[in-house]
Amino acid sequence: MSSTIEVKNLAKVFRVPEKSPGLRGALSSLFFRKFREIWAVKELSFSIQKGELVGFLGANGAGKTTTLKMLSGLLHPTSGQVQVLGFTPHQRRIQFLKQISLVMGQRSQLWWEIPAQETLKLNKEIFELGDSEYQETLSELVEVLELQECLDIPVKRLSLGQRMKAELCAALLHRPSLLLLDEPTLGLDVVMQKKMRQFIREYNQRYRATILLTSHNMDDVVALCDRVIIIERGQMLYDGELNRVVERYAPHKLMTVDFQSVVDTERVAALGKIVSNGGSRMVLEIPRKEVSSVASRLLSQFPVVDLTITETPLDDVVRRIFTRTLEK
């Protein structure tokens, strides 16, 4: 099999015990448990080639994380086939695990009370890395991630951004050829998000690593991925080029403008569609191609205090695609 990831008719069903309230309910559930079946992933098929950087999108609870966990071997699929790097993930062969890495934003494998250095040394032994190999990768990662001082400080005293970088460092020490990122920018500030994206792109290019990342932040995806897979309620909604999604379902960007004082609504409306109007704060919907010209006109014609440009929220995009598929 030539592709890095090959998924066919993948499904995962969770059996959730139903709890009835009260003491009697607790007692009866000890003996007679009722289960509700939840299809977290249903009939999912796709394949990913080596070196691709794919965005895996969907609303909360759409089944992104569950799929990622099945790809990494954490969860046993209920039915369907998964092949990753030629292995069946949930058999958890050593050779397979040595080639992958799973990073979950807001989850930490670092030891909390002591410097991150110690976790790195532990991972060196777990992944059976040679001394020179370890030193080489480490110094590279430290440089790229700007981690110089952070590794000798107890993890609990690092900032969130520093911790996330140290986390990545620990996850990449063995130079995985497949990197699974679950919400890598969750909770980071804008500057840090940008740095994180830069790094992910660089890792992808430098090592020709395959990267699959989930996010519910559209900016992540637009900045990084050429290809996106969108799922909704465990089922495939869209698989293809990002550009086409953007053209069709997110042709606009959102521009949030803070004015010094209340301005004439009609004059602003001439520049673009006003989505929300809070007097001195307005949100405009601007076609992609016109973003820069509209921005400069706004700045020259109005007393602008602040101006931010963002992608359409992912939830909106997904909703639009969803309604479109239903219409078909």
């Binding site: 966990k69 990494s72 050593i94 040595k98 991972n123 992944f127």
Partner: peptide, 13 residues
């Protein structure tokens, strides 16, 4: 509960 087991499971030990 804190998900450390997830890390144990995806590492080769």
């Amino acid at each position: 509960m804190e998900g450390d087991l997830d890390f144990f499971l995806v590492q080769p030990a």
